[in-house]
């Protein structure tokens, strides 16, 4: 019962992240999702040994506190408040999130996984979290939202691991967390540099850096 509510909450945070245009709100949603992901293993296995609790505390600290602060800092330096023109409009994004969920239910039913500990729900929800993260990365323009998409995707992978493996070694957990920390840190710095260089954090303008000559400065034939 409690597990199902947590999993549903995970799903609702996915939709919330896809539906909201305000970046501060998005960061808060992803932080809430990180906290839920953090307490998920403890609740699912119903055991409160030292190791799972240590991992949960680490996860919650990093995903629920450190990342939001870090992203909030880069938001402040980049001085953007909201995603203005996403490549996919918000109503359509919500519908896509629902479609992704249907797809991942289908996927989950096709996969023959070893017996899961937590009912039929967690695997499809983990899948849909992964795919929602990917969708957020490809459909948004601002670099910060793409970082959030990456975080959501990582949350999905973590949830998938929780659904399948009863115990992950502490070292692996901490390694993944450290990896993510470095990744988000680097991305935060990258956002800072992008915004200082271009006065905005729209990633599609980075296309101009390629070898292809931009159309607007290509010499015209009349001259």
């Amino acid at each position: 019962m409690l597990i199902n509510i947590l999993i549903t909450f995970l799903l609702i945070t996915n939709i919330g992240a896809v539906a909201s245009s305000r970046l501060t709100y998005c960061i808060k949603i992803v932080a809430a999702q990180g906290v839920v992901i953090g307490i998920l293993p403890c609740i699912i296995y119903g055991e409160f040994a030292l190791l799972p609790i240590v991992i949960a505390i680490f996860t919650i600290t990093v995903k629920g506190i450190v990342f939001p602060l870090l992203l909030g800092w880069s938001l402040k330096t980049a001085q953007v408040a909201r995603e203005v023109e996403p490549l996919v409009s918000y109503p359509f994004s919500i519908i896509t999130a629902v479609l992704i969920f249907i797809l991942s239910f289908w996927l989950g039913s096709r996969l023959s996984l070893p017996a899961s500990f937590c009912g039929y729900l967690l695997v499809p929800v983990a899948f849909s979290t992964i795919m929602t993260g990917l969708f957020l990365i490809v459909s948004r323009v601002k670099a910060l939202t793409q970082v959030l998409g990456y975080l959501i995707m990582e949350n999905g992978i973590y949830a998938f691991g929780v659904a399948l493996l009863r115990e992950q070694p502490l070292l692996v957990e901490l390694g993944v967390l450290l990896d993510m920390f470095v990744a988000v840190f680097v991305m935060g710095i990258a956002i800072f540099h992008i915004s200082r260089e271009f006065d905005h954090i729209d990633t599609h303008v980075l296309d101009n850096l390629s070898d292809r000559i931009p159309t607007d400065i290509r010499p015209t034939e009349e001259t």
């Binding site: 939709i15 109503p91 919500i94 629902v98």
Partner: peptide
């Protein structure tokens, strides 16, 4: 406003999927 209502629709849809699966 339509976005809010579509979000409501999405919630109902999620419930339906939960129910069917």
């Amino acid at each position: 406003v339509p976005q809010l209502l579509i979000a409501g629709f999405a919630l109902a849809m999620l419930a339906l999927i939960f129910q069917i699966m």
